[in-house]
Structures are given as structure tokens and as C-alpha cells.
Amino acid sequence: MQTWLKSFYRTAPATLIITSASIILWFVAAFQARSLTNVFNDSELVHNMMVWGPAFELGNQWWTPLSYAFMHLDIGHLTVNMFMLMLIGREVERHFGTVLFVALYISAAISSGLLILTLDFMSPTAGASGALFALMVLLVSVYRSRGADLRAPIVLVAVNVIYTFISAGVSLWGHLGGLFAGIILALCVTRKSAAFHWLGIIGLPIAAFFFYTAVGA
């Protein structure tokens, strides 16, 4: 296990750090709530990290369009998302490099968080799913750049989109926000110009914020 972790850290340090931070934060929340199945009601940490329109609008929790992506509401939610992050994040980080990967992850998380605030203002939301949807789209671009068979990553995206529409309790706009963010970011980072990469990474959450101010509550 130790050897595997060292190997993973050498190839995808940011993925491992984000995963570890999310797991640690969830265990803190579970300790506060004294529950492994529902940490929402009795964890102050969850309330401080989740994205929720009224708290954000008051300016009390301006950081939540990013912090929500590092918190999960139950152990099943955490397990699925961290498993997906370890698998997909490693491939995307190895391809784009750690600095660009971190920037892409943060940009996608903030953009999908702001879309939740805009279109689902009253729903308290937490989880890495929005950022993961963006990574799934970016994985398609990774496969395409390698000349690999695109069917597996495309099916992965399609299955998760279908799951979003047929399952209760998932954040529709968080998932779709991540999907849209992933498409925009993939179009930007597949260009040769580094300036274009950063224009997309920085410009996307800024555009999402202006969309929130124009359309939101």
C-alpha cells in the first residue's frame, strides 16, 4: 500500500492531495455529526462548506462555491466520488501536469458551484461531482490527443448524465454545470497557446459569477 501511494503521488500528487483532504474533512464532519450515514444536520463543518444561496448572498460564506467540492454528505457519496477522482484525476493530471490540473479542477468546481447558486438557489449542496463531470469531459480530450479509442470515456460521460436525470438526490445543476465547464475547458486547453488555456480557466468562473449576478436570486 505504501509503495502504491508513493507511486501514485509521484505521478499525480494533486489528485492524491485533493482526495486525502476530502476524506479527512468528511471524517471531521462525521465525528461532529456522530454519524456515517448523515452528516448534514449536525456538522458545523458541513454547514460552513456547503454551497447554499441564502448564506452566500449574505456574504457570510463567500468561499463555498469552492469549498463545497471538498465536502460530502454520507460515506457512500464520498466513496463513489473519491474512487472516480482517483481513477480519472490521475489520468488527467498526468496529461496536463499538476499546475494546470489544479487550475482546471478549481475552475470547474467554482463554475458549477455558481451555477447551483444561480439555478438551484435554495438547495444546500456539497460534493465533488461537478468537478468530476468536468474531469470526465477532459478525459475524453486526453484520449483524443493520444489517438486512443474514445468509446470508454464517452460512455462514462453518457452513463453519468443519464444517472443525473433518473436519480433522486443528485444536484442536477451541479452535474450539468460541471459538464458544461468541462466542455469549455477542454476546448481551451487543447489549443496550443498557453494564454488561451489560462483565458478559459480564469474566464469561466468569472463568466459564471456574472451569470449569477444577472440571473440569480
Rank of each mutant, 00 (worst) to 15 (best):
L5Q: 05
K6S: 14
S7F: 09
Y9R: 13
R10W: 06
T11E: 13
A14K: 00
A14H: 02
L16A: 15
I18T: 03
I23N: 06
W26Q: 04
W26I: 08
F27S: 09
V28N: 02
V28I: 15
V28C: 10
F31Y: 12
F31E: 10
Q32F: 08
A33V: 08
R34N: 13
R34C: 04
L36M: 14
N38M: 06
V39L: 05
V39K: 04
F40T: 11
F40G: 04
N41D: 11
D42R: 13
D42I: 05
N48C: 04
M50K: 08
W52S: 11
W52A: 13
L58T: 12
N60Q: 12
Y68S: 12
M71V: 10
H72Q: 14
D74K: 07
L78C: 11
N81W: 13
M82N: 04
M86F: 12
L87K: 09
G89Y: 08
R90Q: 13
R90S: 14
R90V: 07
R90G: 10
V92W: 07
E93V: 05
G97N: 08
T98D: 02
T98W: 11
L100C: 10
L100D: 09
F101G: 01
F101M: 03
V102C: 09
V102I: 14
Y105A: 09
I106T: 01
A108H: 00
A108Q: 00
A109R: 01
I110F: 12
L114A: 08
L115Y: 06
I116D: 09
L117P: 06
L117R: 03
L119A: 09
D120N: 10
D120G: 05
D120Y: 05
P124F: 14
G130T: 12
G130E: 04
F133E: 02
V137Y: 00
L138K: 04
V140M: 10
V140D: 04
S141D: 07
V142E: 08
R144W: 11
R144D: 12
R144A: 15
R146P: 04
R146K: 14
L150W: 04
P153F: 08
I154V: 15
L156Q: 00
A158L: 13
A158M: 10
A158V: 14
V161F: 03
I162G: 01
Y163C: 06
T164D: 05
F165I: 13
I166L: 07
S167G: 01
G169W: 07
S171N: 08
L172I: 14
W173Y: 15
G174L: 05
A181L: 02
I183S: 08
T190H: 03
R191C: 08
R191P: 03
A194H: 05
A195N: 09
H197I: 02
I202R: 00
I202W: 00
P205N: 04
F209M: 12
F210D: 04
F210K: 06
T213D: 10
A214E: 02
G216F: 05
